[in-house]
Nucleic acid binder design. Structure first.
Lengths: 306, 306
DNA sequence: ACCAACCCATGAATAAAACTAATGGTTAGA
DNA sequence: TCTAACCATTAGTTTTATTCATGGGTTGGT
């Protein structure tokens, strides 16, 4: 067997130095002396045969090897930490933490409605929701950053499973007094002179583009983005634009704001939300329970008042 | 900072015990005594608060926590090992190893033609080709199992880059004396009574299904698979079926075997091969060089004899 | 039923390593 | 030109890892 030389401590030190700027600072954060870190890294450098930092006066700059190691550290350490915490939870007889990834802005409200009964039903399982991923949601699932992915576009690959949990229709939300407000449905051309509001995601991930505007070669007058549904719909209500949202979400707001919902295209834009999991997790009870709960959960489209 | 307790040695021991069946055997493989391993694991168990194995008579059986740790080990240890080897290569001034993943059976021959000039041009870079991935090719790319993915279906996600390297046409290969051999092009119905030979991949990854047969609702009489192109085309030549392959590949064989190439559909099935990489690798010279080489490489369709 | 062959756990002793304290050299900024 | 901040190094100390020696338990063959 080849000599082991890369130990966790080395990754930890490299990460800490990067975060805190100096060996000394890193040392104090790690509750060690500067000397300890210096020794430990020097030993690694000796074994590797290459320096990790260039000593430039009183500060350090990563070498190429160092950059590479920093990448390794940032990737592997969180996995070790999560493993430890999961093991501790197992030891305590708890069930663990369900890490949910969201790739679907408007689903957030729907998710909350599934999470709350879940938390009641599984008092010993915590839930954690993440939204930003270096390699996208699927990457996060594959890389063990999350355990469950909520997404509108499933990606069937070996090792992953996607279960549809509900269907919905993507509609356009316009102000009550808007010229388009009373149309039965819209054509792409109707948006030519509108300001379109969306969540801040790339256009190729927005169905209103991929399924509606692009095929017709139409571009709206302007495109603005908003992080939150509330603000977005406030903007719509005050006549500053139109927004594309799931029907159930739009209808929830249209009772409170001066909004109207209009179909996109004669047949409407049909969408589905999927829950993605790793096949290797197929025996994790609380994960299956969550999916089951999500599937049984009353379809949000049929939720509201008659 | 929370106590660090999961060290590399623990993962190594757990993996070794799983592989060799007993602590004693694992110890000898690791060049340590049985006692050392016993102590080291016991310490981990104490810190975790849960046993890793159930001691059943003279052998060990993994507990749930142990199973989980074994998974972690099998996932993380190879990454550490690869990091070490890459760092050693960096130290020696070598360029490293380019790990190529293949998701495209017939591309193998094309790949060889790119690899050989690459190896000449970069004598200090090794090439390694892998074909099986737990989470598919994209997963392997994201999970740092490979550095480059050869695939016919790109998957645009943040953090990944896909460069098209060549276009080709997917055609049907039939025996010279086959009734369809002289047709200018085929319709899906023409395959109704044929035996179709393909590589052993799921039908939803085969273009002849997704782009040709499925849209017309046609199913061939039988579907057989073959791992290798040679065997597959031997089968075709001996009248046992027909096969869908890239035109350039089919034409290479049709000079040696009694085969004819026929277009699928009036316009043919157009395909592209992409090379996928991580964006974070965009400064790895030899990787970019490989892509450049692949792109410049004479399009295989125009390769052969007139 | 007994014995030989395994296998794992444990405690004490030892070898190895990690860590600290003290110190000196270098650099950047007042 | 001081001073404060940093890192490296040496020597000494503490902690940890490993071994050795041993004992107890299980298994399978005779």
């Amino acid at each position: 067997m080849v000599k082991m030389m890369l130990e966790r401590i080395h990754l930890t030190v490299i990460q800490a130095v990067d975060r805190h700027g100096s060996l000394t600072a890193a040392a104090s954060h790690l509750h060690l002396t500067q000397s300890a870190l210096s020794h430990s890294i020097r030993k690694l450098e000796d074994k590797l045969g290459t320096p990790i930092w260039l000593r430039e006066g009183r500060n350090l700059r990563l070498t190429q090897a160092g950059e590479y190691l920093l990448g390794i550290s940032n990737r592997l350490l969180p996995q070790l930490e999560h493993a430890e915490s999961k093991l501790r939870q197992m030891a305590r007889g708890e069930r663990g933490t369900l890490r949910i990834g969201m790739e679907c802005h408007p689903c957030y409200q729907w998710l909350l409605k599934v999470v709350s009964p879940f938390l009641e039903q599984w008092p010993d399982v915590d839930v954690d929701v993440k939204q930003k991923f270096q390699f996208g949601g699927v990457g996060a699932l594959v890389g063990y950053e999350i355990d469950l992915l909520v997404t509108p576009d499933p990606f069937h690959k070996s090792g992953l499973r996607f279960d549809p949990v509900f269907d919905y229709e993507q509609v356009l939300v316009v102000p009550l007094d808007h010229p388009l407000a009373n149309r039965r449905y819209l054509n792409a051309n109707d948006l030519r002179d509108e300001v379109l509001l969306t969540y801040p995601v790339p256009a190729d991930r927005l169905d209103i583009y991929t399924q509606f505007l692009n095929p017709a070669g139409v571009v709206p007058k302007r495109h603005k983005t908003s992080e939150t549904t509330d603000i977005m719909l406030q903007m719509v209500a005050s006549g500053r634009g139109v927004a594309a949202l799931p029907r159930w979400l739009a209808e929830e707001y249209s009772s409170r704001l001066a909004l109207k919902v209009v179909r996109l295209g004669r047949k409407g834009i049909a969408k589905q939300i999927y829950l993605g999991t790793r096949e290797s997790d197929d025996r994790v009870e609380y994960l299956n329970a969550f999916i089951e709960l999500a599937r049984r959960h009353e379809n949000p489209a049929r939720g509201g008042d008659s």
